[in-house]
Design a protein around this nucleic acid. Sequence first.
DNA 1: TCGCTCATGTAATGGGTTACATGATTCA
DNA 2: TGAATCATGTAACCCATTACATGAGCGA
Lengths: 184, 184
Amino acid sequence: MLKFILLGLLDYRAMTGYELLGWINVSTGNFWHAKLSQVYATLKQLEGDGDVISHVEAQESKPDKRVYTITEAGRAALADWLATPITEHEVKKDGLLAKVFFTSPDEKDALLSQLRLQLKLHQDKLSEYRQEAPAAIGQMLAEQPELAMHAYLWEATRRFGEMYETMYIAWLQESIRTLSEQLP
Amino acid sequence: MLKFILLGLLDYRAMTGYELLGWINVSTGNFWHAKLSQVYATLKQLEGDGDVISHVEAQESKPDKRVYTITEAGRAALADWLATPITEHEVKKDGLLAKVFFTSPDEKDALLSQLRLQLKLHQDKLSEYRQEAPAAIGQMLAEQPELAMHAYLWEATRRFGEMYETMYIAWLQESIRTLSEQLP
DNA sequence: TCGCTCATGTAATGGGTTACATGATTCA
DNA sequence: TGAATCATGTAACCCATTACATGAGCGA
């Protein structure tokens, strides 16, 4: 539900669609992401539902921008979503696991090289969670010092990313080792 | 791509849509899932593309069934997909993390009880990976002993589920502990 | 001069969920 | 008697991606 991600961010402060995507990329990118086109489409839908309102601001030496502000109805919708607990186990989808599952056992070398490529991708992501992500939290706090208490929650989600990538790397290393022994 | 999951399963043996969903639930459910309606729709699409063919079989005291068989073109499409490496970091989506991120810091109690509910869900899932999942692999091997080499690959994906749930539980426990101290 | 940042959107298509519609057999 | 299993599908809708379309300013 990108809808709620946008409402959550607009609850911090009014922003344009372009700015929203910037925040998504540095903060919620860990657990939710979107394309700019979807951000604009969703904002339009939110405005139609009365959850946000917008106005156009002219700028010097930059294009005009449309700034979105959350409404009371929008705050209520957000609070409602936050208060609704998730009671089912959320199912993940992972294309790599699908390939591992269905690879033909005689394609051992191709599989192992795909796993080694993944290892590099996940190691890079891990160092991002350890370096860029804490910096992004600091940046957000610098812009909005009143959100200090929120930083603990942001940190918890960053920490998830760190633990997830650590686990993924451990699984890749274990799998590379055991499959290289087990497959013919 | 449910398409490739279905081709992968049909490469083991010919099956009906209903049977395919049964296998998805006990084997690939870990990394890919689908609704029955989507399975039927995707099979129809695959048949239109020439990747599978089907025929109807009459049964005693059961409804007629339509059995799908993979074609040479389907095998080629599957091999092609398997050979194409994933070169980008796959982005996950997680509704719980979204809620943690955007929860108001003064909703501490509501948040903690949502995290405790999740803890139970993930603990149940972990024991499923430790009990039902190995049994399902044994079951698949009993039905198709010629797939013995595939079992190493299936086990690798089962192991991912086990490690993922273990990590998720550790994160939940850590977050419950630290947030209950940090939030007011 | 080339690519990046800022800035906005629409249209077509694809992938997936929910709801609808049907019906026999078997087991508790 | 009621629920579960077996068995098939369609239609409407929602969410998301890709492609298209435009354009100024700035720094290398």
